[in-house]
């Protein structure tokens, strides 16, 4: 894993002039901030997109919908399994599961 950026070394050696800029600066995936964290912005792109022209502006309510849905499914499944274990009968419609 190459932890250092080659650009300063190449600059010092005066090689930058002879090489296309993209080769030196472009994101090639081998310069890592930490193990397993090697992303870099591409030339001309920001480190963070928030507030930039590429800000996805995600709606927090929309983004929360999947987790709410999963919690609902897990709760309904628990009721189905609990009744099945108790009675030996499978009732899928949760509102039809006998309470007694």
């Amino acid at each position: 894993m190459r932890m250092t950026n080659l650009a300063p070394a190449l600059l010092a050696g005066g090689l930058l002039v002879a090489m296309p800029v993209s080769v030196v600066l472009a994101y090639d995936g081998t310069t890592c901030k930490a193990p397993g964290n090697c992303w870099e912005p591409k030339p001309g792109f920001p480190e963070k997109v928030e507030g930039s022209k590429y800000d996805p502006k995600h709606d927090a309510k929309e983004i929360a919908k999947q987790q709410t849905s999963i919690q609902g499914m897990e709760e309904r499944n628990k009721k189905r399994v609990a009744y099945f274990k108790k009675s030996g009968k499978w009732v899928y419609e949760v509102d039809k599961i006998p309470t007694e």
Binding site: K65, Q66, S69, I70, G72, M73, R76, N77, R80, V81, F84, W90, Y92
Partner: peptide, 13 residues
């Protein structure tokens, strides 16, 4: 024998 919900197509799953 049993039938459970794993994914919710209403959220695209």
């Amino acid at each position: 024998v049993w039938k459970i919900e794993n994914s919710d197509f209403k959220v695209g799953s």
